[in-house]
Amino acid sequence: MDMKRHHYEDVQFLHGWANKFWFAVFVVLVIAAPYMFPAQLFLISLIGVNIIIALGLNILTGNTGQISLGHAGFVAIGAYTTVVLMQSWMIPFPAALIAGGILAMLFGVILALPALRLEGPYLAIATLAFGIAIKIILGNIPGLGGHNGISVIGMDLGFTMITSEVGIYYVIAGIALVMGIAARNIVKSRVGRAFQAIRDSDIAASAAGINLAGYKTMSFMISAFYAGIAGGLWAVLLGYINPNMFEFVVSIEYFAMVVVGGLGFVAGSVMGAAAVTYLRVNSDNLNSVPVIGWLLDLMSIDLTVQTGVTWVITGIVLILVVVLEPLGLYGIWLRIKIYWRTWPF
């Protein structure tokens, strides 16, 4: 433990050599990933997309305490806006992506309206309905390709196209990194503190001068913006979009990422998104997944050919996390850190 000598050190991003070192290792891994795991590049890119969604959802659910089970709706709005602007309006990818984020953010305001009056399960139902409605509406708007969707070819930057898998990965990784740092800084400063105050005691928060309606709306907007940006990236990564990608169970999956990772922790969003996405992508082949595969082999269960089993596994993991480690993967990480710091005691 090092002494702090200045108030800035309380909020500094990467305070101390250990944090700087591990962050540097992380960045090097992110840069080297396409060469270390070329076969897994799609999975890693998808994890990057989902990290962005989880970061935003964690600000809303983990920090502000407002549940959303309709986040796939925001992702869909971002994805469709980006694709339509890029394909039909010939707008360059960066502008189209940001426009998608902003449109999702505006829908965030719309969803915040009921959120100001609803709490807990009632808010969950309202957001769930929002997510389902967006999916159905998008499937029925003429010109959006109906249930077959639209195909996408790369990121059109105006002067050049990024179409290679590696190129798309680096764009996603770069944006995820920037948005991750931004999320961490928001959570650590005045705005994030206001969100947490609303989560812990809205009465005391408002008595201390926080405009509840304003800050709840802001939290929905930030969260929706993150989802919208991720939607645009996901579309390009997959190469097509259709309404079925934004099924309501996908929203549940995003929610699971945040809970499994650790509610209210930026690092938790990263861990949760990585773990849940990994499980999802390997759902056809669960017997080869570490830990779970070993357990399955131990019980001589072969799930290689089962479909839909990923939801069962996600559900079991969620229950285990809530019961055994409410702080999620981040909580486990914290325990390991404390264990090493105090070792051998």
Binding site: D10, I186, K188, R190
Partner: peptide
């Protein structure tokens, strides 16, 4: 807040 990256950034000074 997002740009709280160095000691003299607006938000870092505000916090301090």
């Amino acid at each position: 807040a997002s740009a709280m990256l160095w000691k003299n950034s607006f938000s870092a000074k505000d916090e301090t």
